[in-house]
Nucleic acid binder design. Structure first.
Lengths: 200, 200
DNA sequence: TCGAAGACCGACCGTTCGTTCGGTCTGATG
DNA sequence: CATCAGACCGAACGAACGGTCGGTCTTCGA
């Protein structure tokens, strides 16, 4: 237990948050399955058994990380900009905020996007991801029905490519190093085309 | 050795190609590190030790799969349509063919796109992937310089998003089930925008 | 000052991993 | 019919895995 005022009493320790951060970093560079508890311990500067004092096991670490990413993503859908206005405006808002979250919580979202469903936690995360994507797909369909966009292809395909484009940012973005406004740029590219023909 | 006429002499066996196909399928569903040699053997219908008669080890399987995917991708760059014509036309050709290869060699390309650099083979594949992407990025820059496209964002960012959009197809496409012309649709979406504003 | 509890540790457990080895069976070749 | 090589197998190897256990050290509240 911790007292009301001032968490992390007694020894300075390191806190579960810091350990989670270290663990997620290792999970990303080596892959979850290829990362051993000894790898995590070495990276955190404590022994393997000490790690089990803070987390019940390897999968609990994964679960905590996936929850953090999913909570941030679903929070976007509850914002005003995602619930009011035209379907197209709501879509643009969600895409912009999604890139924001993606950069803000880069390691956690990166881990989420690499999950394949091996463990129970991974299957749970996959299900929530599917629910998130389904809401995007619905919104794309509404935007097409409202005549706000040219329906060049099936809304289902458009929604998938939209998610694919946005999520691909995690593959190369590095925190701190953003000369331009990344969320705005990605949103513009997604809706106006990556390489639109030059005006004649 | 095999005779000129009629490969796979003697026992019917199964052939290394079939074993590779099975192994790649398991690698994709469970992940490379989470897949044991016994998993592979069970899926192939032979014992673990029999598997070593055809492949020198687990990583050799991975290497063979990655080579197959990379060979197909680099072959695109050698086609006429990728070497002659305007930069924009060459880009469109490459994107269309890339989707084609992606669907044609789905499991192998999927595996390639999930590689993170744990083993020597993975690092080798990552390097070749980078070389491929670099050629795309160069071509995007040439198209912008030639005034063939509106340069809304940095060419580097555009190239990355282009690759991300195209490669994301492996996450949901299923072979055989293509009512529409997928390569053409993806190409149009990539260049004209996923959800372009409706004409007034 | 002293008891309690959290942070941490070294040693160890059973299991599973990738790989090896010695050997059997089969079928085309001479 | 004898030979030979490739396809295949059961059993076992050392190493590494995730996880457990009993105990030590440190710090704070009473």
């Amino acid at each position: 237990m911790t007292t009301e005022t001032g968490r992390r009493v007694r020894r300075p320790g390191r806190g579960t948050g810091s350990l989670l951060e270290v663990a997620v970093g290792e999970f990303i560079t080596r892959g979850y399955d290829a990362t051993s508890m000894e790898d995590l311990s070495r990276a955190a500067g404590i022994t393997k058994s000490s790690f089990y004092h803070h987390f019940s096991g390897k999968e609990a670490l994964l679960r905590a990380a996936l929850e953090r990413a999913l909570d941030r993503l679903f929070a976007i859908l509850d914002e005003d900009g995602a619930r009011t206005g035209s379907p197209l405006a709501r879509l643009r808002h969600i895409v912009r905020e999604q890139v924001e979250v993606l950069v803000d919580e880069l390691p956690y979202v990166t881990l989420l996007l690499r999950v394949r469903g091996n463990t129970e936690s991974e299957r749970w995360a996959l299900e929530r991801r599917r629910a998130f994507d389904a809401q995007i797909a619905t919104l794309v369909g509404e935007a097409v029905d409202a005549g706000e966009v040219r329906a060049g292809v099936e809304p289902t395909l458009a929604a998938r490519l939209l998610s694919g484009l946005v999520n691909s940012v995690v593959e190369w973005v590095r925190p701190g190093r953003s000369s331009s406004n990344l969320p705005e740029d990605v949103t513009r590219v997604a809706f106006e085309g990556i390489l639109p023909a030059a005006a004649p």
